[in-house]
Design a binder for these strands. Structure first.
Lengths: 338, 338
DNA sequence: ATGAAAGCGCTAACAC
DNA sequence: GTGTTAGCGCTTTCAT
């Protein structure tokens, strides 16, 4: 059988209260007693039961992480950093893959409540353009500290990157390089702000948006590939493409390559996300990077504060991080068109 | 305050035992009572406390997953599938990134013990060529169901892929295509069995191994790139390269491309792992794929059996899966050299 | 500085 | 079928 605090107390010849003190507030125990008890603990290889602790303290020192998936670069890194950061703060992590299913999400939430996790880091299902009021009020019901990551939900502490500005930067970069016919290949799942940024960049430079050069679809290599083939087939005229993510960009580059177009000479490409291979392509990809580690750390800090102080005292409760334009070969920055 | 079984009992006008039965064995409760109680549960939005349950039942319905990282394609997918599979079986997952640190691993283990997880899926730190007896006896101490994944530890139930045979297949494929000077670019971290397979393939075909064409290093794009450049600089003669993983292969292909060599015409390349982009390259990569989902499912089945039946009754306790050779353009299978 | 005892929320005998 | 009650292993007053 597993050893309990009682066994330790008996072996050390003290009361269970003293053992408990040795574990939780050793400074309140006389050195000699302390010694004896610690010795006994070691001897019995005693490990306190977290469940018993939870019963009386109403704290589990564990937190729930709800993400759509972990098997992709972005969420994989997010999950890893969340785990690391919380581990350092003495918490452990219960992983929940929502797979973008509202139903799964609900079940996860009730499980997390039964387990009394101290808090939750959460990315909603279904990127809602902005927040849905329902989502918020539903979350509200779980009276538990929650920090939203990479999503917007009004009234909750949250951390995300400024995708509108990211897109703006990407497109402005192309405009600055002399491009006037810039396609946008994105889609709802690469967050609508990217398209808004694309349009604002045009507006800011008094450029007309060519609606026929905007294509919305899935965030995949295939979509990028097909779209470029479509453009070529339709005889569309464009000298650059801003892609909603790097996979789309990758597909686009493949299609251009196979159609005998050169990147960046014939068509400049800018992606989004800066996934690992972006830098490793034969023609390295210009792209937008979010400061994932920093964002996650901030989210973890917010949640820790919420848990341990009951409120966010120190600084803003909602933070938006700027993205970074990573200039590589694919946009042809070194080629002058002016 | 959080509602308890007592609140429900009072509201429904029954004893707590009945409420407990309604939750755990509803069939043992008379329909009318059942109704009333369920109604009360709903009304109070009652959620049983997992901690209280754990205290009496000595089961947490949660399991620990120890992996080196989740922010890479392989382990990300493994983690995701482990989570899914256990979720379906009613367990939840505590994620632990060991980062290949023995120290971290130990701390994780004691945390998992305090939390009384019902079992652990585990990949050791430091791929030991074979198992170290110490590792095994250390694991033994935690008297808890453990299944090893993607590693060898004698005497434990385990699941992994047959990398020796995978490498054998890869190299035999190249030999069959007529190659006689085949480089091996791998390294300790891509598991030593791959090199063994490489050698055995040569032996099986009475071919001499060119030791100078074997380079061991890190499992990275850079290593593949540098190695090929080295070969070329040294004037090494080779017509094919088997790479310890796809990233190395990717680097190798980049280097060949930049040196004006064609893949597969001048040099055939075979990778290992079949990562996502392998199929998406301009020259899609021939590679070896492990049946990740199947492997994980098996591991989860084993652990579930161990937890729920105390032993593995149905089938082998240790299983090795064959890998699959995925033939794509990079090996030039369509080019005859004979 | 330490001990005695109550109680956290639940399940499982054991009665009725 | 349902109620009573004794714990599960800990922390935390309240005494001493």
């Amino acid at each position: 059988m597993r050893k309990t605090i009682k066994d330790v107390a008996k072996l050390a010849g003290v009361s269970t209260a003293t053992v408990s003190r040795v574990i939780n507030e050793p400074e309140r125990v006389k050195p000699p007693t302390l010694q004896t008890v610690q010795q006994a603990i070691k001897e019995l290889n005693f490990q306190p039961s977290q469940a018993a602790r939870t019963m009386v303290m109403k704290k589990t020192k564990s937190i729930g992480l709800l993400v759509p998936t972990v098997s992709n670069e972005y969420w994989g890194e997010v999950s890893e950093v969340v785990q690391d950061e919380f581990w350092e703060r003495g918490y452990n992590l219960v992983l929940c893959n929502t797979k973008n299913s509202k139903e799964r999400e609900r079940k996860y939430f009730t499980m997390l409540m039964e387990r009394m996790v101290d808090g939750v880091i959460y990315s909603t299902v279904d990127v809602p353009g902005c927040e849905t009021a329902e989502a918020a009020s539903e979350l509200r019901k779980f009276k538990i500290p929650i920090v939203i990551f990479d999503r917007h939900i009004m009234g909750f502490p949250q951390v995300h990157a400024d995708h509108l500005n990211g897109a703006l930067k990407a497109v402005e970069h192309l405009i600055r390089l002399g491009h006037r016919k810039i396609a946008y290949i994105g889609g709802p799942l690469t967050s609508p702000e990217r398209e808004v940024g694309y349009r604002q960049a045009h507006a800011a430079h008094d450029l007309e948006v060519h609606e026929s050069l905007i294509r919305l679809g899935s965030p995949t290599v295939d979509f990028g590939y097909e779209t470029i083939l479509d453009f070529i087939h339709d005889g569309a005229s464009f000298t650059a493409a801003f892609c909603g993510n790097d996979l789309i960009a990758f597909g686009a580059m493949n299609a251009l390559y196979q159609s005998g177009r050169l990147v960046p000479e014939d068509v400049a490409i800018v992606g989004y996300d800066d996934i690992h291979i972006a830098a490793l392509l034969n023609c390295p990809l210009t792209t937008i990077r979010q400061p994932i580690r920093t964002m996650v750390k901030t989210a973890v800090d917010l949640l820790t504060m919420l848990i341990e102080q009951g409120e966010i005292t120190n600084g803003p409760s909602s933070v938006v991080y700027p993205t970074e334009l990573i200039v590589r070969k694919s946009c042809g920055a070194e080629i002058s068109r002016l």
